[in-house]
């Protein structure tokens, strides 16, 4: 019984981690209309930046609020330098997608050549609590709290603020939004800044919790989009909920399969959803091709 509860808790933690990626992935997909595979690499880059900054000084946590801002500007820079030039050339979403793959591999290789292929560990105290024989670390609690607050913050942003309304307008119909005076390029900048800041903060937390390896970004973006497809790519809340479902299913799967097959479980779930319910559990109904 306690094993089952512990697995559920681990699933909840994994789900929060995935949701930090999937929320931004789905928001960029909704508004910018392309799948940004480089999203996970921004996470990895932020984690490594935090690693370097924190190993230089005693007050590592001082950098905690700074990293998301840097990550936000990294995302903004990528949008301005690459995606915007592509949009100017009237590129299709397929071109943007391939560019994001190129960026993902490029950033991954960049991390590997700066920090090396070896696993890195961030030296920050991370006490373990034991509640009713369930084990959870302080950072894991932070991750869960952070991901739940992202859920509500993004909901509030999209539904209640003027900026959110403008984002939804661009998402629904870019041309009409422009004719009523919304600068879509500005909206894209905001989207990239916000999503990259979220994923950057996530990168710091995940970096403390797990070890750093150059591939972490790619591994996480795959989990992120799987979670987003489960919940529905067309809804941020769905994507976050889908990530939790994915995390829990993966961890419960360990009851029957060796833990090395976690990734295979998530791919089978992705495959099944694409086959049976491609719009996801909470997404809007999608037109075929």
């Amino acid at each position: 019984m306690s094993l089952l509860l512990q697995l559920l808790l681990n699933g909840l933690i994994a789900g929060s981690i995935y949701s930090l990626v999937s929320s931004g992935f789905s928001l960029i997909y909704q508004v910018n209309k392309f799948m940004n595979f480089a999203h996970g690499s921004v996470l990895a880059l932020s984690a490594y930046l935090f690693y370097s900054l924190s190993s230089m000084t005693e007050f590592a946590l001082f950098f905690l609020p700074i990293i998301p801002i840097i990550s936000g500007f990294i995302g903004l820079g990528l949008n301005r330098s690459i995606y915007r030039s592509l949009r100017k050339g009237k590129s299709t979403s397929g071109v943007l997608l391939i560019a994001s793959i190129a960026l993902m591999i490029l950033l991954n290789a960049l991390i590997q050549s700066i920090w090396g292929a070896a696993v890195r560990i961030i030296q920050v105290k991370n006490p373990i609590f034991e509640i009713l024989s369930l084990r959870i670390t302080l950072v894991q609690i932070c991750i869960i709290v952070f991901s739940i607050s992202i859920f509500f913050i993004l909901y509030f942003l999209m539904k209640k603020t003027k900026l959110g309304k403008a984002m939804r307008a661009v998402s629904d119909n870019k041309e009409v939004a422009q004719t009523i005076g919304i600068n879509s390029e500005k909206i894209y900048d905001y989207i990239f800044f916000i999503c990259s800041a979220i994923v950057g903060a996530g990168g710091v937390l995940i970096g403390i919790e797990q070890n750093l390896s150059p591939q972490m970004g790619i591994a996480l973006v795959i989990k992120g989009f799987t979670g987003a497809v489960i919940g529905g790519l067309s809804s941020i809340q769905g994507a976050i909920a889908g990530s939790f479902i994915l995390g829990i299913l993966e961890n419960l799967g360990i009851l029957w399969l060796p833990s090395g097959y976690k990734d295979a479980i998530s791919f089978i779930i992705l495959f099944l959803f694409l086959l049976i319910k491609p719009s996801g559990l909470f997404g809007k109904k999608m037109r075929e091709a």
């Binding site: 979403s93 790619i218 989009f225 497809v229 694409l274 091709a289």
Partner: peptide
Amino acid sequence: PTLRLKSDYLALATLGFSF
């Protein structure tokens, strides 16, 4: 499962597949 959907979904599934 993927070729009936929008082409982005094929990209998703194929990338996940090789991974």
